Amino acid sequence: MSSPSYHQGHALLVGVSTYQHISSLPTAILNDVKDIAATLSSADYCGYAQDNVVSLLNADATRQTVLAGLGALAARAGEDDTVCVYFSGHGAVLPSAGGDDSALLTVDSDLADLAGTAISSADLAAALGQIQAKRVLVFIDSCHAGGAVLSKGLTDGQGHEFKSGYSPSAFAKLAVGTGRALMASCRADEESGVFTGARNSIFTTALLAGLKGAAEKDNSGVIKVFDLFEYVAEEVPKAVSDDQHPVFKADNLEQNFPIALSRGGRKSLTSTSTPSMPVDADRWRQLEQCLVELFPTGPREQELWTRAGGDLSKLQLYGSGQAMWHSAMRTLKQGGGGKNINFGSLIAVAKEDFPNHQLLTSL
């Protein structure tokens, strides 16, 4: 019997450490791309077809070839496919009238002419917009701390200087569209760490572990998008004393969709976990209304969220209690909010406080 495969998976992986006109970055960047390519195309891990995983490194990663690679993705990926785009290298923040914009710097990028030699967020968003796949995930590992002073600024010694990194507005722009999501290595005011002598960057070390199975939560045999980000978001700060926090952006993403096989699609024979049953939209809405009524100040009231196995640090706790509950329930529905919380555990803990509540019992 043939091994399971994730034939619908497609990937374009770009890594630049040695630039023509800009100072170099750590060689770990090239290892990042090579190791992600090997993991995605491995029958023992993600199960992508090797022909569907394209890598562009250093001299091969020009502005023209990267845009051509994105065009090739659009040509071969269908609506029901999954597309991953990964970039590791320099990013530059570009001041503009509408707020800071950003650009990914390819090997031939010239600070004297970034408009013509780099890939702006508008260029990248337009290229991603041509991809018909309903599941598109973009990874950006930029603003590398391993580049010493380069992590704070880019200069060519000829008077052209730009802030290094990628702006929040550019992150948001790349996540626009149904089924689109972006995962970045750090916040705009942080640095993406690379330990001296390490094979991979801190972000990609966690990403690789997640793709190799650590991010699988329900013994389903697949890695899902929200589970992967939650795993990476928890692991990266541990490695750098809470100095680096990955960013996740999604504009219209309701489902925790699969992006790859986990451990070649093999399900653990010893696992006692069972996949959670799907919950329809009406039940989510009813539970939210119930929690707003019973715990009007929000998820922190009576330590409800924590007692249900959740992590308050994963929530946006501002605004009215109703607003906090709406945000928290959306996060939970997407698979976030903590490793051990789910629809059932939240109801169970709420019933401890209100054992005779009719709606809680019916849910």
Rank of each mutant, 00 (worst) to 15 (best):
S23K: 09
Q322E: 15
S220C: 12
H10M: 09
S96C: 09
M324P: 01
T178R: 13
D311G: 08
P258N: 03
F87H: 09
L137Y: 01
L111F: 10
L30I: 15
C84P: 00
N219C: 09
C46Y: 08
S167Y: 04
S3A: 11
V93D: 00
K314Y: 06
F87T: 05
N52H: 15
A198S: 15
S192L: 04
Q64G: 02
A260L: 05
A181Q: 02
A59L: 12
I202M: 15
Y86L: 11
L207V: 11
L73T: 06
Q255R: 10
L154Q: 04
P237N: 05
L363C: 06
A239E: 14
R307M: 11
M1F: 11
G298M: 04
V349I: 12
I29Q: 03
D353R: 14
D32Q: 07
H7M: 08
A43M: 05
L228R: 04
L360H: 01
D60L: 12
F343W: 04
S201N: 14
G153M: 09
L315S: 02
N200R: 11
L332Y: 02
A97I: 06
R199P: 01
Y19V: 06
N340Y: 14
D80F: 02
N342V: 11
P278E: 08
A175P: 08
R180Y: 10
G99D: 07
T178C: 02
P26N: 09
N31A: 14
V83C: 02
Q50T: 15
S271L: 03
Q158E: 14
I36R: 00
R263V: 10
Q255A: 13
V149C: 06
V236L: 07
G9A: 10
L13M: 10
V176S: 01
G210K: 02
T178A: 14
V240A: 09
R283G: 00
A68E: 15
Q334W: 00
A214S: 15
